[in-house]
């Protein structure tokens, strides 16, 4: 079976890769491109650990074929920090102990960034519903919600 050739932009860099038609974007990121920050927790879109953005839109990379990435702009956790400068969300997740095992953390950060990009001042309820597709089993979500609130406040200059 011949592979498909895909040209795409990942974290601002143009990238090309080959994939099989059945490969998901998550497969391509993790196994072909070496970007293992997105995790596979369920492969059914129920846990959000594989969250990335496609043209700025939050998606589960397990629910998208790799071939669909042709010509799209993909952003992953690996591109969230600006070189050695952490994004305020990353900083507040660290300072607020918003992670324990850390497996869900990349997905939460990508999803939270997608929220704050659209809504710089979300309510607690808005944060909770926006992040309902990201499962965390360690924290009970408390410190995650607070970290997002604190990052939002910092980004607003509050």
């Amino acid at each position: 079976m011949s592979k498909l050739h895909v040209t795409t932009t990942i974290n601002g860099d143009s990238r090309e890769f080959l994939c099989e038609p059945e490969d998901t974007l998550l497969d391509a990121l993790r196994n072909t491109l070496g970007l293992t920050g997105a995790k596979e927790g369920c492969a059914t879109g129920d846990c959000g650990a594989c969250s990335v953005t496609v043209n700025g839109r939050l998606v589960c990379s397990c629910l998208m074929l790799a071939a669909e990435a042709e010509g799209q702009e993909i952003d992953t956790i690996e591109g969230m920090a600006d070189h050695d400068k952490l994004h305020p969300l990353q900083k507040h997740f660290l300072e607020g102990a918003a992670l324990q095992c850390g497996i869900c953390t990349p997905g939460f950060l990508v999803a939270a960034k997608a929220l704050l990009d659209k809504n710089p001042d979300p309510t607690e309820t808005e944060i909770r519903y926006h992040l309902a597709g990201n499962l965390c089993r360690c924290t009970g979500y408390d410190k995650i919600i607070r970290a997002v609130q604190n990052a939002a406040a910092e980004m607003r200059g509050a």
Binding site: G45, D46, G48, S51, V54, R57, L58, V59, C60, L63, M64, A111, A114, L115, H130, L131, A132, G133, N134
Partner: peptide, 9 residues
Amino acid sequence: VGSTQVQGR
């Protein structure tokens, strides 16, 4: 239908 992520698609 589904999460914010699912809504994106």
